[in-house]
């Protein structure tokens, strides 16, 4: 959680989480439904810039977080390039067949991945889970029992990790020798899953009992008051405007400065 700590608070932090969630889902749909290579490339570029500026996280840190997505870009685009269908063959060697169409489709896929990642991270880096669930309860009438069980389980995750580390050490101490191959993986998984699950279930039960003891009524959303009030504010409009403008920029740029200029990349 601490690694996301922003150095600056931006408009995006101040906007209502529900608005952000809606906005990001909208952007997701836009990216999914885009089949123009230039547009997708500009989306990836524009939203990465947005992410660097609006997340409030130090840019070098953010770029570090983007490394895994870069790897995803390389792997997804290269596999599409090497194995995808196409008529205009550029290069062929055994199973590998790079065609013009598959090459562009590979790039398209890679850029889509980057665009998705940036859009998702825009939400994740600027919204805490507590904020998100509080505003979902207040604005979208999410039943408190779901919201609080999610928040409680997020709190329990680090404990599971801690236990995983102890279990690993304990197995080493007990002299469990690694068995190679698939059978090894399966038996190894069993050695971890059973004790960790047993502990987690017990812990979840205890947390639930403690919540009940604090007079938690999962369905009583009507009379419930909220410690963090979430209202719509002008920041919501600002953020909507900003991200819409970013999407428009990408569209216009794709129209005026196309890099590839090949239109729809779908193969039919």
């Amino acid at each position: 959680m601490n690694i996301w700590n922003p150095v600056r608070i931006t408009w995006l932090h101040r906007a209502n989480p529900v608005v952000k969630l809606g906005l990001i889902i909208g952007l997701f749909f836009m990216t999914v439904l885009t089949h123009n290579l230039d547009f997708v490339m500009y989306q990836a570029f524009v939203f990465t810039v947005c992410l660097l500026v609006l997340s409030g996280v130090k840019p070098w840190k953010m770029l570090l977080f983007l490394i895994p997505f870069l790897l995803a870009f390389i792997s997804s685009s290269s596999s599409m390039m090497l194995f995808g269908k196409g008529d205009t063959i550029w290069w062929e060697w055994g199973l590998f067949r790079v065609s013009e169409e598959s090459f562009y489709r590979g790039l398209h896929l890679g850029f889509k991945g980057i665009a998705f990642a940036s859009e998702g991270l825009l939400l994740v880096t600027t919204t805490s889970s507590v904020d998100l669930f509080y505003s979902l309860m207040q604005k979208l009438r999410l039943a408190p029992k779901y919201a609080y069980s999610f928040m409680a389980s997020i709190r329990l995750l680090p404990m599971v990790w801690e236990e995983y580390v102890i279990r690993r050490q304990a197995l080493k101490v007990r002299g469990v020798l690694p068995i190679r191959g698939i059978r090894g993986i399966v038996s190894r998984a069993g050695l971890y899953v059973v004790p960790l699950l047993a502990q987690s279930i017990r812990r979840a039960h205890r947390v639930a009992a403690a919540m009940e003891a604090k007079q938690f009524d999962g369905d009583g959303a009507k009379s419930r008051t909220y410690y963090y009030p979430f209202r719509y504010s002008r920041y919501d409009l600002l953020v909507i405007g900003l991200l819409a403008a970013a999407a428009c920029c990408a569209y216009i740029a794709a129209g005026y400065f196309p890099w590839f200029g090949i239109g729809d990349v779908r193969f039919d």
């Binding site: 959680m1 507590v130 609080y148 928040m151 409680a152 997020i154 709190r155 404990m159 812990r203 205890r206 947390v207 403690a210 919540m211 604090k214 007079q215 938690f216 009524d217 009379s223 419930r224 008051t225 909220y226 410690y227």
Partner: peptide, 21 residues
């Protein structure tokens, strides 16, 4: 370790107060 459902002290106490409206 298993008596709280929220990550922060104030949020946990607020959880009780919210339950009481």
């Amino acid at each position: 370790d298993t008596q709280f459902c929220m990550p922060y002290v104030d949020e946990e106490l607020a959880f009780v107060l919210e339950n009481l409206s």
